[in-house]
Design a protein around this nucleic acid. Structure first.
Length: 193
DNA sequence: TATACGATCACCT
DNA sequence: GGTGATCGTATAC
């Protein structure tokens, strides 16, 4: 069964809808012609300058520029001096919003990923935003990449997900304010917590 | 120029 | 449950 790549229209929508519907889709990274991939099982939405947890809450800067651009591009940032996080830009041009990919279930080239992560314990290969970037060798050199065009990084259509499998919770690691902390903008697939 | 800190993780107790 | 690693950004001087 062939799987098509998600097109611009998928990303050019309401961010919460995109965050929810990215669950179950296949994130694909190609290195030296080899496919590394996994099914997306955890996402978080970051929406607009009013969202204090969103990097764009402090306005347009060189770092946040990508989020203001067209949907379907990768926003990758470096954090805590050692990790990278992968987001996909959503909604329309000029409105800063993105979905953070927080977890995937490894599928293709698992051994390659395990090597990248220096052979972690079972279940800890790609269960976090920093971890999955390390496993897939994603860093800021890929920032701004168009996931609708690039052959290095993209997301593929998969089977439909049963809405009953989706869990919604507040976002993780928010330290800005109580309102941002409470927003139920984290989505998980299959009872994963 | 200088400084404080973060959408994290690994390792410790 | 706590903390150190480690550095790009934003912001203040």
């Amino acid at each position: 069964m062939s799987s098509g790549r998600l097109g611009r229209d998928f990303y050019a929508r309401d961010t919460l809808k995109v965050a929810r519907e990215l669950l179950g889709k296949r994130l694909v990274r190609v290195i030296d012609g080899e496919r590394l991939s996994g099914l997306i099982v955890e996402t978080e939405a970051y929406i607009g300058e009013e969202d204090r947890a969103c990097h764009a809450s402090r306005g347009r800067t060189p770092r946040t520029e990508v989020m203001y651009g067209p949907p379907g591009h990768a926003y990758i940032y470096f954090i805590y001096g050692m990790y990278h996080c992968l987001n996909v830009v959503t909604d329309g041009v000029g409105f800063p919003a993105a979905v953070l990919i927080r977890g995937i279930q490894p599928e293709e080239s698992v051994e390659y990923m395990r090597r990248n992560r220096r052979f972690p314990p079972e279940g800890e290969l790609t269960n976090g935003p920093g971890k999955l970037c390390q496993a897939l060798a994603i860093d800021r050199s890929l920032n701004g990449l168009d996931l609708c065009q690039s052959d290095l990084l993209f997301i593929e259509e998969t089977r439909a997900v049963d809405p009953g499998e989706i869990e919604v919770t507040p976002r993780i690691g928010i330290r800005t304010d109580e309102i941002a902390k409470r927003r139920p903008w984290r989505f998980l697939l299959g009872g994963k917590v």
